[in-house]
Amino acid sequence: MSISLNVYLVTDGNGREAVDFYQKAFGAEVLALQTFGDGPSDPNHPIPPEAKDRIMHASLQIGSSVLMLSDTFPGMPYTVGNHVTVTVNTDTTDEAKAIFNQLQDGGEVKMPIQETFWSPAYGSVVDKFGVQFQISATPGQA
């Protein structure tokens, strides 16, 4: 069993500026940077022009830790206090589902755990203490 935890920040359209800022402040290495426009297209859910350059996901290596962040999607609420989440990365789908199921007990599921184009098992849940977690199976990367 391999599990890692990371801090995940949500920015309100200024994600690229935040990546540059944290890269400089911490001497970080940008491991990944993907905009909503870079993601796979879906004719049933087209990406609006104002979302194409917003950050869908970025990862920065800071020492032995990884800081992750994304922008809100245009029109989604941005609330200071809810803009920091904890990501839980496991190396198997079964581990991700088991952790998700435990965290949802008494909490609120924001996105059911499911297969996505970036993970065989990803979900988002706010636990009974009000902490938001993003659970993701990333085989070989936890």
Score class of each variant (00 low, 15 high):
Lys110Thr: 00
Gly106Phe: 09
Glu108Ala: 14
Lys97Pro: 09
Ala98Met: 11
Phe129Ile: 12
Phe133Gly: 03
Lys110His: 05
Met111Ile: 15
Asp94Tyr: 01
Thr93Asp: 11
Thr92Ala: 04
Gly106Arg: 07
Glu115Thr: 15
Pro112Cys: 07
Asp91Thr: 09
Gly107Tyr: 07
Thr72His: 09
Thr85Pro: 00
Phe73Pro: 05
Gly140Arg: 09
Thr90Arg: 02
Thr90Gln: 02
Gln134Leu: 14
Phe133Thr: 02
Gly107Thr: 06
Thr138Ser: 12
Gln114His: 04
Gln132Ala: 15
Asp94Met: 00
Lys97Trp: 02
Ala137Met: 03
Val126Leu: 02
Asn101Arg: 04
Glu95Asn: 03
Gly123Arg: 03
Met76His: 10
Val80Gly: 11
Asp71Gln: 05
Asp127Gln: 01
Val131Gln: 07
Ser124Ile: 13
Leu103Trp: 06
Lys110Trp: 00
Asp127Ser: 03
Val88Pro: 08
Val86Ala: 13
Val109Glu: 11
Val84Ala: 14
Glu108Cys: 07
Val86Gln: 06
Pro139Asn: 03
Lys110Phe: 01
Asp94Ala: 14
Ile135Phe: 01
Ile113Phe: 09
Gln102Met: 07
Lys128Phe: 04
Val88Phe: 05
Pro139Ile: 02
Gln104Val: 15
Gln102Lys: 09
Ile113Cys: 05
Trp118Tyr: 10
Glu108Asp: 10
Thr93Trp: 08
Val131Leu: 14
Asn82Leu: 11
Ala98Phe: 09
His83Lys: 13
Gln134Tyr: 00
Pro120Glu: 08
Ile113Pro: 04
Asp71Trp: 06
Asp94Val: 14
Ala96Cys: 09
Gln102His: 07
Phe100Met: 12
Phe73Asp: 09
Gln114Leu: 09
Gly106Lys: 07
Thr90Ala: 08
Val86Trp: 04
Ser119Ala: 09
Lys110Val: 11
Ser124Met: 13
Gln134Glu: 04
Val84Asn: 12
Phe100Leu: 10
Asn89Lys: 13
Thr85Ser: 15
Asp91Lys: 04
Phe129Val: 12
Asp105Lys: 14
Glu108Pro: 02
Lys110Ser: 02
Gln102Arg: 03
Phe129Gln: 13
